[in-house]
Design a protein around this nucleic acid. Structure first.
Lengths: 172, 172
DNA sequence: GGCCGATAGTCTGAAGTCAAAGTATTTCCG
DNA sequence: CGGAAATACTTTGACTTCAGACTATCGGCC
């Protein structure tokens, strides 16, 4: 899923797109287009950095997210449907993800105690320690220095929280 | 590629993750983690909205981006390698994308006038008018109202431009 | 008790992506 | 000039994702 470009572009593609939008007569949509495009490109750049750090651990970002979600849960186990809701992942993709994590010995399937429709994904010891190691790596290489000032980080989170709330990511 | 969740979560997943990070003793990485996670989730939400608007036009976001890039080029045609660089897409994916767009009659392959290694993707009339129609739709439904105040939009673009520059998306 | 709609998970097929290898062509440089 | 390295694109195979269909189970309601 990560992008493939190695070299930086010699100009800001977002600024260029905004200029095209304005010259095409779509000025009132240009700022929103620039915002959306900025998010898209920033996400690709960050995802590429993250996947690069996780690859030596044998994890993709999606698999890492599953491990972290389980490690923060009270019992280290969650129904597959909960994973899908939290991570914005299709049910069929959850099945596949848990299949792979199970094959890698990081997670095991456990019957739900009271609902025979449901299956729990439960973190193994190997899964828990791999999640810790990968997190230490990510914290050091990406999260501690995301390429912004502390003030910039705060403003970014504030604005994106507003956007996500309005877009229906969560209800306050 | 779009996410699959229909209903909003009853809490902000980014704020929750930040709390987990702080309680785990990773306080210095917590703000960066929150920023990165915010971008990831915002991207998924926006991509889902965009793909929903584009689906009736028979386009994915990636295909739409190709059409727009061609429509803004001087001659309406670009070498495939240019498309890949600009859109952060793997060369093999560009081949696949252009195959599909060609099959849909939106683009045609043309020999490069001077470099016999290269192939140009050239917008057809159908491709140009579809790009215009899809853009009108996107402008009205997503870009004109991305879920932020005008001030928020501006701050977002500013901060993300800084992040992208530092992360190597472009060189000023 | 028994039916009906909702929910949980899986399976299948289509689409898209990436890495690696292969072919053709161009460019650099001795 | 001529060969090595770089570049442009395609092909192949593995992996991931999604939509849609299917089975099993649960819960509410008559």
């Amino acid at each position: 899923m990560a992008g493939a470009r190695a070299r930086p572009l010699p100009f800001d593609p977002v600024a260029e797109a905004r200029g095209h939008w304005e010259r095409a007569g779509w000025a009132e949509a240009a700022p929103g287009m620039a915002a959306v495009t900025s998010i898209m490109r920033a996400q690709q750049v960050l995802l590429a950095r993250i996947e690069e750090v996780l690859r030596p651990h044998g994890l993709s970002f999606a698999r890492y997210e599953v491990l972290m979600l389980l490690s923060f849960s009270r019992t280290g186990a969650l129904p597959l449907a909960r994973l899908g809701e939290r991570l914005q992942v299709h049910p069929a993709s959850v099945t596949n993800l848990v299949d792979r994590l199970t094959a890698a010995g990081l997670v095991s399937r456990v019957a739900h105690p009271s609902d025979r429709r449901a299956t729990l994904a439960e973190l193994t010891e190997a899964g828990r320690s791999l999640a810790l190691a990968a997190t230490a790596d990510l914290n050091a290489t990406v999260f501690a220095a995301p390429g912004l000032t502390p003030d910039g980080v705060q403003r970014l989170v504030e604005v994106l929280t507003e956007l996500r709330r309005d877009a229906g990511d969560f209800t306050p």
